[in-house]
Write a protein that binds this DNA or RNA. Structure first.
Lengths: 161, 161
DNA sequence: GATGTCGTCATTCTTTCGGGTGATTTTGCA
DNA sequence: TGCAAAATCACCCGAAAGAATGACGACATC
């Protein structure tokens, strides 16, 4: 958390130094102090936005509510073609007993959708290595050696739709 | 959300204008363009941080974990505990339109069960290369690039249980 | 007999996966 | 405020998967 402020200070100082150095070479020579100011403004604005995003990243309050929804299932009714009439609730109990974290389950669902590790990484804004780590842990907890097997197990256990 | 960007632009422009105006009155007179740059930098950095904070204000995520509890209606017909009492009839029509052969579908179901190519080859008494060929053809017909994607497509299309 | 489909298998090459290990950072909680 | 869990990322290496091609035999059909 504090690291970012440090980075901000250091890089900011470097920026100022650079700008001040180049100032005497290009900008001021051409009598365009406005350009110099605009450049500083843009750079620091972008940097400030970056810092702001860093500081308040994923700082959400998660209010979890468990809603038990009882669904009457006619016994003779065949399984619906699209089984997603209900938004699907992953079996939280089983997830807990297996020790599968929310992030791992999230990656698992994307795996089940047929995405590659790289695509998942892009979609979640993390590195491919991170995805692989989550995958490996999830596979381990599911006792799966391959991603297809993990998907199969996940569906069996009611973790995946 | 976009309002903040607008505010940012407007206020940023005003700041630049103000600074450019005052520049000729105070700052440049004292030959301190550095001060001018630093001022711009600080102002815009603070402004950027503000914008970043605005944009990603801590959102309160209300996550409702819906636990779907299936209550079987006491019907006259005995309810199938597992919905696969019928051995699952793959959508033959769709299979035909896609031109997927029986052998390809057979391999596809084994893929969906999480078996590796080698395991499939062993189980079917064919070579691993053959399995790969069938896989490739099936993936092509399904428009899938990966086996997980093929499984997902196959389930969507009713080809796989 | 020519044609076409299907199943089988091989080779080469590239990409992706997965295991193993270690490290740092962030976060939630006591 | 400190600790434990979770999340993130990196690196290496071997195995698996997949793409691209070519080939061959069985079988059916015309």
């Amino acid at each position: 958390m504090k690291r970012h402020v440090l980075i901000f200070g250091v890089v900011g100082g470097l920026l100022i130094a650079t700008l001040q150095y180049t100032e005497y070479r290009f900008v001021v020579i051409q009598h365009s102090v406005e350009l110099y100011g605009a450049l500083v403004a843009i750079l620091f604005a972008a940097f400030g936005i970056w810092l702001g995003l860093r500081l308040t990243r994923r700082r959400e309050i998660i209010r979890e509510t468990v809603v038990v929804k009882e669904v009457l299932v006619p016994a003779e009714a065949p399984a619906p073609i699209a089984p997603n009439m209900a938004p699907f609730a992953p079996n939280a109990a089983r997830q807990q007993t297996l020790g599968i974290t929310a992030r791992e389950l999230e990656i698992l669902t994307l795996v089940a959708r047929g995405l590659s590790n790289r695509e998942i990484a892009t979609q979640l804004f993390v590195s491919e290595n991170t995805v692989k780590t989550h995958c490996a842990r999830a596979f381990d907890k599911l006792g799966a050696a391959r991603r297809t097997q993990a998907v199969q197990r996940g569906k069996e256990l009611g973790l995946l739709p």
